[in-house]
Design a protein around this nucleic acid. Sequence first.
RNA 1: GGCGGUGUAGCUCAGCGGUAGAGCAGGGGAAUCAUAAUCCCUUGGUCGGCGGUUCAAAUCCGUCCACCGCUACCA
Length: 515
Amino acid sequence: MTRRFYVTTPIYYVNGAPHIGHAYTSVAADIVARFRRLAGDQVHFLTGTDEHGQKVEQAATAAGETPQAFTDRISADFRAMADTMQISYDDFIRTTEPRHVSGAQALWEKVAASGDIYLGAYEGWYALRDEAFYGEDELIDGPNGQKLAPTGAPVEWVREPSYFFRLSAYQDRLLELYEKRPEFMGPSGSRNEIMSFVRQGLRDLSISRTSFRWGVPVPNDPEHVMYVWFDALSNYLTALGYPDTNNPLMAFWPADLHLVGKDIARFHTVFWPAFLMAAGIELPSRIFANGWWTVEGEKMSKSLGNVIDPRDLVSEFGVDAVRFFLIREVPFGGDSDLSRRSFIHRLNTELANDLGNLAQRTLSLIARNCNGALPEAGARTEADTHLLAQAELLPSLMEEQVGRCALTDALEETWKIIRACNAYIDHQAPWALKKTDPERMGHVLRVLADALRIIATVLQPWMPESMDRMLTQLGVSESERSFAALGVALPAGRELPAPKGIFPRYTEAEDEKGQ
RNA sequence: GGCGGUGUAGCUCAGCGGUAGAGCAGGGGAAUCAUAAUCCCUUGGUCGGCGGUUCAAAUCCGUCCACCGCUACCA
């Protein structure tokens, strides 16, 4: 009985080029998706782009393009970034696709049928640039007496008819949800903030606009287009074929995990469950927010010119190095800093020295002393048993951690074993056994090969390309790389390809920057 | 202003009632299979300040200080 697992990234807003933050969330989701596949689940992994709204309409006009041509171009760029980062998405949804538009409309009608949508008027201080309304008390005085949003954007008093969602009616049910299902959202800091936000009281939510046209038309009232969050959030359902319950993909609902950036955690933990409750649809299992990246200690911003395109790092260091660093550097959920110095340091100490060198020394000993064939396992000594027992625990240990989105902790678990392997090889000294006890030398190398196989298998979700190479060098065929396959030992005597370094060191660059 | 979080070794952080921990950095040694990588040992902290509860407090309570986040529509 295969378990189904549905994981999503946010759909990214196409008003700018993809940067390291987008890559971060996608890599995290990809690790979860790949991990679940290794564990044997049937996985559906969704990513995509959010393409409606006034800002997009205007950006397109400014670029001298139609909105559709503009979004085609930017969306393709996001998709290219996902491909570069080796994101193993099963589907890429665009909110301008017909399947999404009709699905979002169906969801709207379902919510409307519950009586939780009504027509009213929205008026307030509106900032075109931010595409947002602001409260009177939030405004600041600009030069010439002009009122400005806290972001510095000019505002104007606007009144327009709008459909509202009766969010205020859901306050108690939401709080009850958070209390009853503490795992519904994380990390805990984010959870506390959301809960206190909801306790402060919820206002009804404006969910349509008449001031621009680039959006999903509201059913039965074409003057209105959907406000961006109703449109965007529904993608998680429309990508499964909603409202067509006969679509086989609908079996993946409810989603197991929505991964989001912490800035949009609220929309996913407040608006989304409320919409779903109104529509009588099951709620997702878990929503987890990741933190922000700073660059060399500074906030990423266009004006500072320090926005990092992950593809630049990939072309210099390789995709796996970037994926590894993003998840390894700081406990997943918190904020983190990307500096060239710490980046190179991580790659050198952990990838090149600890793991790469371990594989290299083990494999070259086998190549030279065992005719390049996988040695036979011998009777296990206490040291052998101790090492392998720890390694064999990895899949289940990491499964628990990945389930909690503790992606960094899971890596740390693996590194403990890698360090133990380095200690083991030194203590066993197979290069010395070669003269005194060649049989035992083979057994020691086999223990290391087996431990490395486990290590490379569990690390596949984090570093798919390099672990593919490592498993190949260890003689593990494509069909022997799942967690289940770990239960079957590789036959002794299997021929191994010539070992080749997997993680290079970056000495020059480190010297340049070092001090 | 309100709510919340953080403050532990030089750095990044774990521990959250019972004799201070990890990784990295620093120091000493071993080894030489390996990407000069590795292994072993080791220096280093009145656990932000002050009070309190307790046989016992990084760990609970109070208070103060310093930073940070959230307070309605940007990964």
